[in-house]
Design a protein around this nucleic acid. Sequence first.
DNA 1: CATTGCATGTAACGCGTTACATGATTAT
DNA 2: ATAATCATGTAACGCGTTACATGCAATG
Lengths: 170, 170
Amino acid sequence: MSLRHGVLGLLAHSSASGYDLMRAFDLSLANVWPATQSQLYGELGKLTADGMIEVVAEGPRGRKEYAITAEGRDELRRWLIDVPPARVRRSDMLLRVFFLSQVDPDQARAYLRRQGEQAERALAELESIRGVVEGGDDDLRHHGRLAFEYGLRLHQAEAEWARWAEQQIS
Amino acid sequence: MSLRHGVLGLLAHSSASGYDLMRAFDLSLANVWPATQSQLYGELGKLTADGMIEVVAEGPRGRKEYAITAEGRDELRRWLIDVPPARVRRSDMLLRVFFLSQVDPDQARAYLRRQGEQAERALAELESIRGVVEGGDDDLRHHGRLAFEYGLRLHQAEAEWARWAEQQIS
DNA sequence: CATTGCATGTAACGCGTTACATGATTAT
DNA sequence: ATAATCATGTAACGCGTTACATGCAATG
């Protein structure tokens, strides 16, 4: 149920339309909690029905601007503080590692090398947008920096692991 | 579509019943690709219909022993080598980080501290089962060690990040 | 006037979770 | 006997993805 809280979190920061939220998800939350347009509009309907958000203005082209309600804020805080994050994360990358004995050692090593390169690419990509993240200092971006740093460290560790793992294969 | 490949991977290692697979998922794949009993039995049906696996023996209590077919092996290898792993991983833990400005700095720091402790607990738990993982040397367990090491490094990095992030808050 | 961008929505399908439902065999 | 374990399945519901469908408004 986290798409709901992603929407509440963004609206707690500032009111927005479905379209605005869509871009916000693509820009800032894409690597953490991706959402499709279709899913968003659906959730906006449910959140409105539940009284967590409300339409505060209508603009051109049928634009509806949503704002978070007091109830919505309560729910957001409850989720932040009382609900423990999920511990398990699925990884089809690691699932493949378990079954690597099903292919030649050469292919297995190639697989791990590719994963290492992939991690380094992700790392480089993050470094390249460091400026954007460190630019503004609204509080969304401020905390975004923490998530950014997480990404850096994670991909770093992943790249090192992949290099190590490649050497472990026969 | 990775549950399918998890099943194929386990059956490539050795034939088993749905019940056996269930335990294998809980024991070795729980942290990488969890599956429920219900999902498993459903997938076994689909895999059989698709000719990827077949019933090779029937035992007491309606037990059906499944084995992977040649087609199944082909599909498993194709998935291992040709299908690139998903790049995005959802994390409601990080999603919360984005919205931490919605609670008091004290609560925000407490959140990060809890996540750090959680990572350390996970780390300790992994260390405690090191013996089990390093024990046998069938190839499933051999490659399991690689995934195990990944977990160690990941949780290590996560714990360090959480300590760092906690200090970043005002 | 034509293109791009803004803007909202619906439908179909598959995967994952929870709960329900049943029954045979083995061990104590 | 009775409890634990082995063993298989179904049903309901929600979330996520892809594709479809439509139309207004601003920019050049």
